[in-house]
Amino acid sequence: NLFVALYDFVASGDNTLSITKGEKLRVLGYNHNGEWCEAQTKNGQGWVPSNYITPVN
């Protein structure tokens, strides 16, 4: 599942992941309501807002 970041997101805690607009990432899963997804980039792994990313076509 390859996705791309639509916006910059700055991590606010130990379990969140900073991403940069245009960065590619893999989604590993979603939380119970789908608002957050666990993602992996070359810089690490953590939670990002699911509305900040979109699938790569």
Rank of each mutant, 00 (worst) to 15 (best):
N33V: 05
Y52A: 15
N31L: 08
L25H: 01
I53A: 04
G22F: 00
L17K: 03
D8H: 04
S18L: 08
L2R: 11
N57H: 04
S50L: 10
G22T: 00
Y7R: 15
G22E: 02
I53G: 00
N33W: 04
Y7F: 14
Y7I: 14
L28Y: 10
L25F: 05
Q45L: 12
T54D: 03
G13N: 14
D8A: 10
Y7K: 15
V4T: 06
I19W: 00
D14Y: 02
F9A: 11
D8R: 03
V48T: 02
G22S: 06
G34L: 06
T20Y: 09
S18A: 10
L25E: 00
V10E: 12
P49F: 00
A39P: 00
E35L: 09
T20A: 10
G22W: 02
H32W: 10
E35N: 03
P49K: 10
E23P: 00
D14P: 08
V4S: 12
Q40T: 12
D8K: 04
A11K: 11
S50P: 02
G34K: 14
G29T: 10
N57Q: 15
L25M: 10
K42E: 15
C37Y: 11
Q45D: 07
H32F: 08
T41N: 05
E23S: 09
N43P: 01
K24F: 03
E38F: 08
G13A: 12
N31S: 13
I53L: 14
V10N: 14
K42D: 15
I53S: 00
F9E: 01
D14A: 10
W36T: 02
P55H: 09
G22N: 04
N15Y: 04
G29R: 09
S12G: 11
G44C: 11
I53K: 02
D8G: 04
V56K: 14
L2N: 15
Q40P: 00
A11L: 05
N15H: 10
W47P: 04
N33R: 07
I19S: 00
S50T: 10
P55L: 09
G13D: 14
E38C: 05
T54Q: 15
L6G: 10
V48S: 00
D8E: 07
T41D: 01
V10A: 11
L2A: 02
Y30M: 11
A39W: 01
G22Q: 02
H32Y: 13
A11F: 04
P49H: 04
Y7P: 00
G44Q: 14
E35H: 02
L2V: 03
V48R: 00
G13C: 09
K24L: 02
Y7H: 12
K42S: 09
W47Y: 13
W47N: 08
Y52E: 01
A5W: 01
L6N: 08
D14V: 10
S18T: 12
G13I: 15
T20K: 04
T54R: 13
L2Q: 08
V4Y: 06
T54E: 15
Y30R: 14
L25N: 01
T54N: 13
E23G: 02
N57T: 05
Y7T: 11
V48G: 00
N31W: 05
R26K: 15
G44T: 02
D14S: 10
T41P: 01
A39R: 01
F9V: 13
V48K: 00
N33M: 06
V48H: 00
L28G: 04
